[in-house]
Write a protein that binds this DNA or RNA. Structure first.
Lengths: 199, 199
DNA sequence: AAAATGAATTGTCATATGGCAAGAAATACA
DNA sequence: TGTATTTCTTGCCATATGACAATTCATTTT
């Protein structure tokens, strides 16, 4: 790590059973990294060797459907970890792509460094389990939402919880993330705007 | 553990970095348990304190939607771990219910015992990360499938990958798991049967 | 600034799935 | 064994979303 007292890393790794000096060791294992808009951090077929702590910008993950269409599977906002868990931890060629939507600034850490921290700092492996639990919860939540909520509700929820995505991501990415076409999202957005005015 | 050489537990916990004697310690931390059909292993609002390794039977997890409807979020088959990760590891009241679909036999382990194994056996915490990675992958896959595949395709995939669910679970549970109504699934099933005959 | 490229909107029509209710079948109960 | 209850099927119609194409709007490039 080049800077000291980095707030992105400290926020991400803050955890009850991680001591101050351990936190510093963890932060020092990261290296600053910048990406330009539309740059790929990971491409389908590659085996991921690192992950990133995002400080500025917006990133998306997407998979290719059987019919060859892009489907955005997730967004990454500042202070989140940009990672393809399955490829990094199971050492498998990924089926996902990770691509920046805007210029980005973040902190990179290699799998090797991560493994060392995971084995040498007990609090860190607890943190890891906890982080993974959060990710799993969010993923299940998104999946449930796809079943229980209408497309309009899903859009409004995303707007409320992650306005930065609505503001920065192209409509087509948001649409496929919500499980609808860009045409439908355009209409939903129009209708939502109309309702806002009335209210 | 009461029996020796239990194949369900050994299958579940087999992992390269877990030694034979460690595997035995892990298995011994489990206790045999039986459930009757329709019994609840966890109810919405409770904090989960244990998980189960299923040997025989079929189990489902379900959440209650905003409109008060049951939505089946997952099924558990033999040799799988029956768990509500978020509640068990984050110590939060669960939003899910876990209920048997048939009479079941399995092996129970408490969070305390799990924590001890997690901290004392390095290979076990790696196993844990790996297991969680698999669960996350499966969950993401299901979520993606809900977007990219039609209801019919989702049904056929489930039938191929988990025929035991199709055979044992009531239609309405399968339907909500696939994100459709029982009415629609009944029609889809009829059409699928017709196609089988033709082929 | 002009041209070119890509993104978003809108119209028309098609279709998959849902809502509701009635009837049939299966299962549980007593 | 007969009755009650739940589960499954089917018909009818409503509706949300998709497919495709044309147009407008925005952004990038030269």
């Amino acid at each position: 790590m080049t800077d000291s007292g980095n707030s992105t890393l400290e926020r991400i790794y803050r955890y009850p059973t991680i001591k101050a000096e351990e936190l510093e060791v963890i932060c020092k294992a990261h290296e600053k990294i910048c990406f330009k808009k539309n740059e790929y951090l990971l491409k389908e077929g590659q085996i991921s060797n690192e992950y990133y702590c995002l400080e500025e910008g917006l990133i998306r993950a997407f998979a290719t459907s059987t019919e060859g269409k892009d489907v955005t599977t997730g967004f990454f906002s500042p202070n989140e970890i940009v990672i393809e868990v399955a490829s990094l931890f199971l050492r498998l060629p990924t089926k996902e792509n990770i691509q920046t939507i805007t210029d980005c600034v973040g902190w990179k850490i290699s799998l090797d460094s991560f493994q060392q921290l995971f084995q040498s700092i007990p609090g860190f492996s607890e943190w890891g389990r906890n982080w993974m639990t959060d990710v799993l919860f969010t993923t299940k939540q998104h999946s449930l939402t796809m079943i229980t909520d209408s497309a309009t509700e899903r859009y409004l929820t995303l707007q409320k919880d992650h306005p930065e995505i609505i503001l920065q991501a192209p409509l087509k990415y948001i649409a496929s993330y919500l499980g609808i076409t860009d045409t439908s999202l355009s209409r939903i957005r129009k209708e939502a705007a109309r309702l806002q005015v009335i209210k």
